[in-house]
Amino acid sequence: MHPLRIERLVYRWPGAERSTLGIGALSLASGESLFLYGPSGCGKSTLLSAIAGVVDVPKGVIHVADQDIGAVCGGTRDRFRVDHIGMIFQVFNLVPWLSALENVLLPCTFSQRRRARAGDNPARTARRLLDELGLSDPSLASKQAHELSVGQQQRVAAARALIGTPDLILADEPTSALDEATKAAFVDLLARECAEAGTALLFVSHDRSLERHFDRGVDFLALNGGAA
Protein backbone atom coordinates (compact mmCIF):
# COMPACT_ATOMS: atom_id res chain seq x y z
CA MET A 1 0.00 0.00 0.00
CA HIS A 2 1.22 3.46 -0.89
CA PRO A 3 0.07 6.25 1.41
CA LEU A 4 0.42 8.59 -1.55
CA ARG A 5 0.76 7.98 -5.28
CA ILE A 6 0.52 10.75 -7.86
CA GLU A 7 0.65 10.10 -11.59
CA ARG A 8 0.36 12.63 -14.39
CA LEU A 9 -1.41 15.23 -12.28
CA VAL A 10 -2.38 18.34 -14.18
CA TYR A 11 -4.48 20.87 -12.36
CA ARG A 12 -5.70 24.29 -13.33
CA TRP A 13 -7.70 26.53 -11.04
CA PRO A 14 -11.12 27.21 -12.56
CA GLY A 15 -10.77 30.26 -14.82
CA ALA A 16 -6.95 30.26 -14.70
CA GLU A 17 -5.05 30.43 -17.98
CA ARG A 18 -2.14 28.20 -17.00
CA SER A 19 -2.04 24.98 -15.10
CA THR A 20 -0.88 25.39 -11.52
CA LEU A 21 0.17 21.78 -11.16
CA GLY A 22 1.81 19.44 -13.62
CA ILE A 23 3.38 16.56 -11.79
CA GLY A 24 4.57 13.47 -13.60
CA ALA A 25 4.96 11.12 -10.67
CA LEU A 26 5.36 11.34 -6.90
CA SER A 27 4.87 8.63 -4.35
CA LEU A 28 5.51 7.98 -0.70
CA ALA A 29 5.99 4.70 1.11
CA SER A 30 4.70 4.00 4.60
CA GLY A 31 6.80 5.73 7.21
CA GLU A 32 8.71 7.69 4.60
CA SER A 33 9.25 11.40 5.07
CA LEU A 34 9.54 13.72 2.11
CA PHE A 35 10.71 17.31 2.21
CA LEU A 36 9.22 19.35 -0.63
CA TYR A 37 10.84 22.76 -0.97
CA GLY A 38 10.21 25.72 -3.20
CA PRO A 39 9.48 29.43 -3.10
CA SER A 40 6.19 30.80 -1.85
CA GLY A 41 3.33 30.95 -4.30
CA CYS A 42 4.60 28.27 -6.63
CA GLY A 43 1.67 25.90 -6.09
CA LYS A 44 2.80 23.86 -3.10
CA SER A 45 -0.36 24.60 -1.16
CA THR A 46 -2.46 23.78 -4.21
CA LEU A 47 -0.78 20.39 -4.38
CA LEU A 48 -1.63 19.76 -0.72
CA SER A 49 -5.24 20.85 -1.34
CA ALA A 50 -5.42 18.45 -4.27
CA ILE A 51 -4.08 15.59 -2.16
CA ALA A 52 -6.49 16.47 0.65
CA GLY A 53 -9.33 16.39 -1.84
CA VAL A 54 -10.39 19.96 -1.34
CA VAL A 55 -10.02 20.86 -4.99
CA ASP A 56 -11.53 18.67 -7.69
CA VAL A 57 -8.95 16.61 -9.50
CA PRO A 58 -9.52 14.20 -12.42
CA LYS A 59 -9.95 10.52 -11.74
CA GLY A 60 -6.97 8.25 -11.52
CA VAL A 61 -4.26 10.80 -10.83
CA ILE A 62 -4.05 10.98 -7.03
CA HIS A 63 -4.33 7.92 -4.82
CA VAL A 64 -4.24 8.26 -1.06
CA ALA A 65 -3.97 4.91 0.72
CA ASP A 66 -4.77 3.33 -2.63
CA GLN A 67 -8.04 5.22 -2.88
CA ASP A 68 -8.59 7.36 -5.97
CA ILE A 69 -9.29 10.81 -4.57
CA GLY A 70 -10.83 11.99 -7.85
CA ALA A 71 -13.39 9.18 -7.72
CA VAL A 72 -14.99 10.10 -4.39
CA CYS A 73 -16.90 13.25 -3.81
CA GLY A 74 -18.40 15.59 -1.27
CA GLY A 75 -18.91 14.40 2.26
CA THR A 76 -17.33 11.04 1.48
CA ARG A 77 -14.11 12.87 0.67
CA ASP A 78 -14.26 14.76 3.98
CA ARG A 79 -14.66 11.52 5.86
CA PHE A 80 -12.00 9.80 3.82
CA ARG A 81 -9.60 12.66 4.49
CA VAL A 82 -9.88 12.45 8.25
CA ASP A 83 -9.63 8.66 8.15
CA HIS A 84 -6.32 8.68 6.28
CA ILE A 85 -4.73 12.12 6.43
CA GLY A 86 -3.48 14.30 9.28
CA MET A 87 -2.89 17.95 8.50
CA ILE A 88 -0.72 20.70 10.00
CA PHE A 89 -1.01 24.29 8.80
CA GLN A 90 1.29 27.29 9.04
CA VAL A 91 -0.39 28.98 11.97
CA PHE A 92 -3.66 28.90 13.85
CA ASN A 93 -4.12 25.18 13.70
CA LEU A 94 -6.35 24.90 16.70
CA VAL A 95 -9.98 25.52 17.49
CA PRO A 96 -9.59 28.34 19.99
CA TRP A 97 -12.47 27.41 22.26
CA LEU A 98 -11.32 23.85 22.84
CA SER A 99 -8.59 22.75 25.20
CA ALA A 100 -5.29 21.44 23.87
CA LEU A 101 -6.34 17.90 24.67
CA GLU A 102 -9.71 18.29 22.96
CA ASN A 103 -8.00 19.69 19.89
CA VAL A 104 -5.78 16.64 19.73
CA LEU A 105 -8.82 14.39 20.01
CA LEU A 106 -10.75 16.16 17.23
CA PRO A 107 -9.95 13.58 14.50
CA CYS A 108 -11.22 10.84 16.82
CA THR A 109 -14.58 12.59 17.14
CA PHE A 110 -15.02 12.78 13.39
CA SER A 111 -13.41 9.48 12.34
CA GLN A 112 -14.18 6.03 13.68
CA ARG A 113 -11.05 4.67 12.02
CA ARG A 114 -8.81 7.20 13.76
CA ARG A 115 -10.57 6.55 17.07
CA ALA A 116 -10.19 2.81 16.68
CA ARG A 117 -6.51 3.21 15.88
CA ALA A 118 -5.92 5.55 18.83
CA GLY A 119 -6.16 2.66 21.27
CA ASP A 120 -8.63 1.79 24.01
CA ASN A 121 -8.32 5.19 25.56
CA PRO A 122 -7.80 7.95 22.97
CA ALA A 123 -7.38 10.55 25.73
CA ARG A 124 -4.46 8.61 27.17
CA THR A 125 -2.95 8.27 23.70
CA ALA A 126 -3.37 11.99 23.21
CA ARG A 127 -1.62 12.73 26.50
CA ARG A 128 1.21 10.40 25.52
CA LEU A 129 1.60 12.19 22.20
CA LEU A 130 1.62 15.59 23.89
CA ASP A 131 4.13 14.23 26.37
CA GLU A 132 6.42 12.97 23.59
CA LEU A 133 6.15 16.29 21.82
CA GLY A 134 7.41 18.07 24.91
CA LEU A 135 4.10 19.18 26.35
CA SER A 136 4.31 17.02 29.44
CA ASP A 137 2.92 19.60 31.84
CA PRO A 138 -0.58 18.28 32.61
CA SER A 139 -1.93 21.82 33.04
CA LEU A 140 -1.08 22.53 29.41
CA ALA A 141 -3.42 19.81 28.16
CA SER A 142 -6.44 21.43 29.78
CA LYS A 143 -5.54 24.96 28.72
CA GLN A 144 -7.61 26.59 26.02
CA ALA A 145 -5.81 26.60 22.70
CA HIS A 146 -5.55 30.38 22.51
CA GLU A 147 -3.69 30.47 25.81
CA LEU A 148 -0.78 28.48 24.38
CA SER A 149 2.31 29.92 22.75
CA VAL A 150 2.71 29.54 18.99
CA GLY A 151 5.34 26.83 19.43
CA GLN A 152 3.08 24.94 21.83
CA GLN A 153 0.17 25.31 19.41
CA GLN A 154 2.18 23.81 16.57
CA ARG A 155 3.13 20.85 18.74
CA VAL A 156 -0.50 20.32 19.69
CA ALA A 157 -1.32 20.44 15.97
CA ALA A 158 1.35 17.81 15.34
CA ALA A 159 -0.14 15.60 18.05
CA ARG A 160 -3.55 16.01 16.43
CA ALA A 161 -2.18 15.02 13.03
CA LEU A 162 -0.50 11.98 14.57
CA ILE A 163 -3.33 10.60 16.69
CA GLY A 164 -4.94 7.49 15.37
CA THR A 165 -1.95 6.94 13.06
CA PRO A 166 -3.23 8.17 9.71
CA ASP A 167 -1.49 6.89 6.58
CA LEU A 168 -0.25 10.32 5.58
CA ILE A 169 0.50 13.63 7.24
CA LEU A 170 0.46 16.79 5.16
CA ALA A 171 2.42 19.66 6.73
CA ASP A 172 2.12 23.05 5.05
CA GLU A 173 4.98 25.27 6.31
CA PRO A 174 4.24 24.47 9.95
CA THR A 175 7.49 26.06 11.10
CA SER A 176 7.10 29.46 9.47
CA ALA A 177 5.92 31.07 12.70
CA LEU A 178 8.58 29.46 14.86
CA ASP A 179 12.01 30.76 15.79
CA GLU A 180 15.17 28.96 14.66
CA ALA A 181 15.74 26.86 17.77
CA THR A 182 12.12 25.74 18.16
CA LYS A 183 11.90 25.11 14.43
CA ALA A 184 14.60 22.43 14.30
CA ALA A 185 13.34 20.74 17.44
CA PHE A 186 9.78 20.69 16.11
CA VAL A 187 10.69 19.22 12.74
CA ASP A 188 12.93 16.65 14.35
CA LEU A 189 10.18 15.55 16.71
CA LEU A 190 7.59 15.41 13.96
CA ALA A 191 9.73 13.36 11.63
CA ARG A 192 10.67 10.95 14.40
CA GLU A 193 7.08 10.46 15.55
CA CYS A 194 5.96 9.79 11.99
CA ALA A 195 8.68 7.25 11.46
CA GLU A 196 7.79 5.48 14.72
CA ALA A 197 4.11 5.37 13.84
CA GLY A 198 4.76 4.28 10.27
CA THR A 199 3.01 7.36 8.96
CA ALA A 200 4.23 8.91 5.72
CA LEU A 201 5.04 12.63 6.00
CA LEU A 202 4.85 15.19 3.22
CA PHE A 203 6.46 18.34 4.56
CA VAL A 204 6.29 21.48 2.47
CA SER A 205 8.55 24.46 3.18
CA HIS A 206 10.60 27.18 1.56
CA ASP A 207 13.31 26.75 4.19
CA ARG A 208 15.91 24.30 2.83
CA SER A 209 17.78 24.20 6.11
CA LEU A 210 15.22 21.72 7.37
CA GLU A 211 15.91 19.19 4.66
CA ARG A 212 18.37 17.18 6.79
CA HIS A 213 15.58 15.95 9.06
CA PHE A 214 13.87 14.04 6.24
CA ASP A 215 14.43 10.85 4.31
CA ARG A 216 14.60 12.75 1.04
CA GLY A 217 14.03 16.19 -0.39
CA VAL A 218 12.46 17.22 -3.65
CA ASP A 219 12.58 20.59 -5.38
CA PHE A 220 8.98 21.51 -6.10
CA LEU A 221 9.87 23.57 -9.18
CA ALA A 222 11.64 20.59 -10.72
CA LEU A 223 8.85 18.23 -9.75
CA ASN A 224 6.21 20.58 -11.11
CA GLY A 225 7.89 20.70 -14.52
CA GLY A 226 4.72 19.63 -16.23
CA ALA A 227 3.04 22.93 -15.41
CA ALA A 228 3.05 25.07 -18.49
Binding site: R81, F89, W97
Partner: peptide
Amino acid sequence: EFAILRSVGATP
Protein backbone atom coordinates in the same frame (compact mmCIF):
# COMPACT_ATOMS: atom_id res chain seq x y z
CA GLU B 1 -12.13 27.65 12.95
CA PHE B 2 -14.38 26.14 10.29
CA ALA B 3 -11.40 25.34 8.06
CA ILE B 4 -9.72 23.55 10.95
CA LEU B 5 -12.87 21.57 11.64
CA ARG B 6 -13.05 20.62 7.98
CA SER B 7 -9.42 19.52 7.99
CA VAL B 8 -10.20 17.09 10.80
CA GLY B 9 -13.14 15.63 8.94
CA ALA B 10 -16.13 17.88 9.57
CA THR B 11 -18.24 18.08 6.43
CA PRO B 12 -19.72 21.43 5.37
